[in-house]
Amino acid sequence: MLDDRDTPRGGARRREATDLYATVLEVVKRYHGAARITRVSYGAGMPVDRLRVLVERLVALDLLRSEEIDGRPAYDITPRGQEFLSTYWKMRAFIEVLESNPDGRPARRRAERAPAQ
């Protein structure tokens, strides 16, 4: 996912809310309907209490759905969630190009002046 470590050409980019939602959706997608909250927290790299808030919001928006497996909730991505991811990645690709200078060097971004996360 495009977090601080994976930004193109080493430019720092702060993870924004949409990046976090996309990260969670991508991790959940890998578990094919059996994503446990702790396992998702390791994949998304965020603590469980913070993740629960994001997951609840994603469920409320019908981007994720929850199902009890062995008495514990497991999550799966919905078709709307897939649609969100598809749009998100397309937009990120265009933003990346728009934020690069024509010579290929990354443009100075707002986040580069922001304090480290």
Binding site: M1, D3, D6, T23, E26, K29, R30, G43
Partner: peptide, 12 residues
């Protein structure tokens, strides 16, 4: 070298 049938990852 990575030799595998299927490879899946959620992140980078």
């Amino acid at each position: 070298r990575l030799t595998a049938e299927t490879v899946e990852a959620g992140g980078g």
